[in-house]
Write a protein that binds this DNA or RNA. Structure first.
Lengths: 121, 121
DNA sequence: GGGCTAATTAGATGCTCATCGATACAAGGA
DNA sequence: TCCTTGTATCGATGAGCATCTAATTAGCCC
């Protein structure tokens, strides 16, 4: 496909840790969309498989890990991409994917509860 | 209600950071269940409202924050409780809720990508 | 170009879930 | 004991989504 990486993409600067202050309605909606992307066993495994490698991962290497049709995997990857959690690029016949560490780190910070992490007083 | 806190509860010791090694099928399923609980705008706001306070939060104080029926809020709180993210207890007429910091910290650790946080060499 | 493989898109289906109104339960006070 | 207020459960409904098969697009090689 042509616009695999340049998709919508959210997960930009949002947000302060949940425990710091009540999150806004808008932030909650945006975060929920990102979290929905990871709230699925298949996508969690996909994300982990991709993240656990140092280099990019060929989609063709992901397929045999699942008892699912290829279109289904493609659909899940698209969901992860639209959530801004992974990037991907076609090179020749194959498509390669990689995680976007900043996106994961943002989620990590979101759930942090310790004073230092949340930036509380 | 009688068994508000002692509900199922998952989110125990699970799991290693996604980026450390490919997550197992079982872990993915368990994590997805927890993440589904936070992958909703209303529950995210509920969680944040409860977490942002130092003391327990009365459910009666949460209701006016939403344009939703009382049963709906009650249902969302139950979902958060069953995911092990909050605890709650009835005291007299009112029910009070609090976050379980360990559960949030586990999610935080799950998404961490930096070497130190993920425990990578 | 023709054919092959990898991946995406389209359309259909069945299940999960967010929400509601109505009802039941819990607990305190008159 | 009865009424009132706060919360939970029930049953129904409509929207969203995970999955499939079939068809289409992208790019390589002969």
């Amino acid at each position: 496909m042509s616009k695999q990486t340049p998709l919508p993409v959210i997960a930009e600067e949002c947000c302060a840790p949940l425990a710091r202050e009540p999150i806004s309605k808008d932030d909650a909606a945006e975060l929920a969309r990102i979290l929905k992307a990871v709230a699925d066993p298949v996508r969690l495994r996909l994300l982990s498989l991709i993240a656990a490698r140092d280099e990019e991962t060929c989609v063709c290497d992901l397929l045999p890990e699942f008892d699912l049709s290829q279109p289904t995997i493609s659909h899940h990857l698209k969901t992860l991409r639209e959530a801004g959690l992974i990037g991907s690029e076609r090179r020749g016949t194959w498509v390669y994917s990689w995680v976007i560490p900043q996106a994961l780190d943002r989620l990590s910070a979101l759930f942090a509860t310790s004073k230092e992490d949340t930036g509380v007083r």
